[in-house]
Design a protein around this nucleic acid. Sequence first.
DNA 1: CGGCAGTCATGCCCTTTGGCTATGACCTCC
DNA 2: GGAGGTCATAGCCAAAGGGCATGACTGCCG
Lengths: 322, 322
Amino acid sequence: MSQLPDPESLRLLVLVGDVGSLSGAAAQLGLTQPSASKRLSVLERRLGLVLVDRTRRGSQLTDAGRAVAGWAQRVLQEMEGLLTGTEALRTKRDAELRVAASMTVAECLAPGWIGELRRTRPELYVGLQVTNSEQVPALLRSGAVDLGFVESPRAPAGLSARQVARDRLLVVVAPGHPWTRRRRPLSVAELVAAPLVLRERGSGTRETLDQALRKAGAGEPLPLLELGSATAVRNAVIAGTGPAVISELAVGADLADGRLVSVAVEGIDLRRDLRAVWASGRVLVGPAAELLAVTRRRGKRDRVPRAATGPHPAPPQPPPSP
Amino acid sequence: MSQLPDPESLRLLVLVGDVGSLSGAAAQLGLTQPSASKRLSVLERRLGLVLVDRTRRGSQLTDAGRAVAGWAQRVLQEMEGLLTGTEALRTKRDAELRVAASMTVAECLAPGWIGELRRTRPELYVGLQVTNSEQVPALLRSGAVDLGFVESPRAPAGLSARQVARDRLLVVVAPGHPWTRRRRPLSVAELVAAPLVLRERGSGTRETLDQALRKAGAGEPLPLLELGSATAVRNAVIAGTGPAVISELAVGADLADGRLVSVAVEGIDLRRDLRAVWASGRVLVGPAAELLAVTRRRGKRDRVPRAATGPHPAPPQPPPSP
DNA sequence: CGGCAGTCATGCCCTTTGGCTATGACCTCC
DNA sequence: GGAGGTCATAGCCAAAGGGCATGACTGCCG
């Protein structure tokens, strides 16, 4: 029954709200007015709601329509990310600017960056290769890509690097989990003692965690499950599989609306820098330099301390060396 | 040309990644295997990418497929919010639990809450009415709804209330804006002197801002544009219209990926409580109590300090009374 | 070695969808 | 009272998308 609403109808709805007329919205989408009319009717029937108030001189969204349009915009925004992302993947070969990004960066940030770059330079073809942090240096040295983004704890040797954003790994659990009722931060010992949902070895996220644990004098984490993408980890946590350590970037929205809860940990520093890296001989010019500028503008340290992880502020002091 | 990908195909892609087989995924969607095969081919052709690696014994996602599946999940997640939201809007009349929420709460939080409630109580029909903070008390008193959510600065008189989440208004600008290059927090005087994109009067967001400015000894804000929903305000800022004061909840994702930048302000307290309210005579029982429990679990004060607004931590001290 | 249980692709048929054009009803302003 | 705007409806048609039947290939196991 469900019959998911199609994105073009959602866009039409949003547009109707913006321009205040059904035929106007139709024109902007390159449709005729009757098509738009029918489409909107179908959408309303499917959702079982009256979304627009049709008058003889224009159409307004109803209250329900405004609410749905809001949700629709969120859908469309993600859809746009998907589109710019796929376009970048597609032009991998013959792009003017070839970029390699680790999974987390590719999933959460790259579409936005590329989208913004292409807003000022629409003719620029950007090719994106998504891979593991480990392989980015090789791609750069071989000249397969011009610019890379890594999330590993240290900048790779022999490459120029510049921090473009700061990220933080968070311990997250599903809303009902016992850890959400703790009044004190988790200790490192408690963290390593618990079976965790983790990214696989070799991923930047896992590397960061392993190294931070070593620095804090703790051993290896105990994998309950190892998964190949941040989203997969996130899903497992939401499904109640167990706690996970995951990038703040990947779960920002879930924390905001409470699908996930972050748990403070003390005695360990889980912050990390996301870096742009490139072959150190070269000077960055042209498209690569422009993209780097975009990332620097966007990734201002402004937005870093976003997720102070709890009533217990995350420990800024370095963990005690044992 | 663009031809947006349809959500069911995206879901199919994600499912293929999860179950590792095209026919298996088809079965879960209630499709036959040939249909799924064709659908996936169409999706690949539309996106211009090879997404799955078909072998004779199962199918795996390619690297590109994994990336696209990640973006697809974000789309589907928002779509799910839209669906639970519309379902709640639809059952407004004959619901077992009737809820009224202000715009911001309805847009950002309500779908998540209702979705979670319905995960444990699938048979429960929840009706959602989205309205202005001002009108919630009247709806409660008339018995039209059982539970309300408001974002106004003070709890309405004569109603029982409980804080369910904490929110904060942020000053946000587009990435290139001069304010992003400031090294010192904005003063209240500078804020009121600048023309701002604002919500309309009567909205909880506007009320909060107006009152906070009064408390800080400043005058009225200067509206550059007044818009009726948080998303509309957000769009205007992204489009470069000007700075806005807007709920952190509405722009969390944009801050995370750098589409927007928040600017620290000193001398004013823009935090606010989101409250559940209900007719004070009644004791909350049944569905209403359950929903309240969900909101309390999810809205743990854990997640509050998420957006410390900058290199300059937001001032926790109350603004100096003039 | 020869079934059997899996996988996926293809070809054919049919229903539904969604676009267009043409037309009509209604409002408002000149 | 026409002109220019809104929207809805009807009829037509192409394309999309579903199902069934079938074929090709792999791997397992008797």
